[in-house]
Computed example of a mutant assay.
Amino acid sequence: MRGVVMHAPGDVRIERREDPRIVEPTDAIIRLSATCICGSDLWPYRGIEKIESPLLMGHEYVGVVEQIGDQVTTIKVGDFVVGSFVISDNTCEICRAGFQSQCEHASFVAGGIGTQAEKARIPYADGTLVATPGQPSADLIPALLAASDVLGTGWFAAVAAEAGPGKTVAVVGDGAVGLMAILAAKHRGAERIIAMSRHAGRQELARFYGATDIVTERGDAGVAKIKELTGGLGAHSVVEAVGTQESFMQAVGATRGGGHLGYVGVNHDVTIPGIQLFFAGIHTLGGPAPVRRFLPELIQLIWDRTIDPGKVFDLRLPLERAAEGYRAMDERRATKVMLTF
């Protein structure tokens, strides 16, 4: 099969790899219908995250089940499935509490499996994959693909920030996850949604998904603007969807006392001043999103055409042009690149 492999910063190749096979009785083999490039894939691409050996890229995926192990019971061959970017059994105590990304058997799809490929072996298939109500029409596939990570992550961020009726929500980050957090906040009934963005195209999409205000300032100026818009108090709910020092501290500063901060940006070298966080007096919750927790609800919302997260894909390329997709996202010419077969 063909798959994307990253050998060094900026060095993305399409290579032939062995087809996956059933290893454990809880495995499933899926033939991918679509996959995509994630903002977190840019960390090694830019050399910020060290590459020790060639990386099998990709962790967002939808497709059709081709084989299942003897112990797989919730999906069957021929099902169209959406999977989380974190493998989980969905039965352990932590999973039952709704934090499947912290499952005792958790492992990341990226690196070890790699779903920027024609096929993939998914361990703990019953706990990781969710079947759609039927075979989706082609126009639903981008939306279902978004549920695998960016929609589920943005959804978790909005839940962690307790976005809801009567709340003002501020979203730091105008990438795919930030945009999906806006969608989620809108669906959860937020009264006002402030998108922090300097990119005209992303501002337009933010408004499509429910943003009521756009703030272009960053850092301390961004915090000041949020407070100006909220009577000096700050937002009730803030989402941090970038992962840099500036964005995280901007999110902390934009959250009102007693408010909630949901942080899902994959961070590198972020140092949080303890005394500043202490005196902020806010609730914080974040980390890798337990996407599996939300998949059944998200799939149904997409299936019923209540939400359309698929619009976040503003560039679609065949798998063999993956390197071009990486460049487009690195240069901010694309928000989210979908790869097809």
Results as ranks from 00 to 15, higher is better:
Gly3Asn: 01
Val5Phe: 14
Met6Leu: 07
Pro9Ile: 06
Glu18Thr: 07
Ile22Cys: 08
Val23Ala: 14
Arg31Lys: 15
Leu32Lys: 05
Ala34Asp: 08
Cys36Phe: 04
Asp41Arg: 08
Leu56Thr: 11
Gly58Cys: 10
Gly63Tyr: 01
Val64Asp: 08
Glu66Arg: 14
Thr73Phe: 09
Thr74Pro: 03
Thr74Ile: 00
Lys76Tyr: 08
Val77Glu: 13
Gly78Gln: 14
Gly78Asn: 09
Val81Arg: 10
Val82His: 04
Gly83His: 12
Cys92Phe: 09
Glu93Ser: 14
Ile94Pro: 02
Cys95Tyr: 04
Arg96Glu: 13
Ala97Tyr: 09
Ala106Gly: 08
Ala106Ile: 07
Ser107Glu: 14
Ile113His: 12
Gln116Asn: 09
Gln116Pro: 02
Gln116Gly: 06
Pro123Gly: 06
Ser137Asp: 10
Ala146Val: 05
Asp149Cys: 11
Asp149Lys: 11
Leu151His: 08
Ala157Trp: 00
Ala158Ile: 10
Ala160Asn: 13
Ala160Pro: 03
Glu162Tyr: 00
Thr168Leu: 00
Thr168Gln: 01
Asp174Trp: 00
Ala176Val: 08
Gly178Thr: 00
Met180Arg: 04
Leu183Cys: 07
Gly189Asn: 11
Ala190Arg: 01
Glu191Phe: 01
Ala200Asn: 06
Arg202Gln: 12
Gln203Cys: 13
Ala211Asp: 02
Asp213Phe: 12
Ile214Lys: 02
Arg218His: 04
Asp220Phe: 01
Ile226Ala: 01
Gly231Lys: 05
Gly234Arg: 00
Ser237Pro: 06
Gly243Asp: 04
Gln250Arg: 01
Ala251Thr: 08
His268Lys: 13
Ile275Met: 10
Phe278Val: 13
Gly281Asp: 06
His283Tyr: 13
Pro290Ser: 11
Val291Thr: 04
Arg293Ser: 11
Arg293Tyr: 13
Leu301Val: 02
Pro309Val: 09
Pro309Cys: 08
Gly310Val: 06
Arg316Leu: 02
Arg321Leu: 12
Arg327Tyr: 04
Phe341Cys: 02
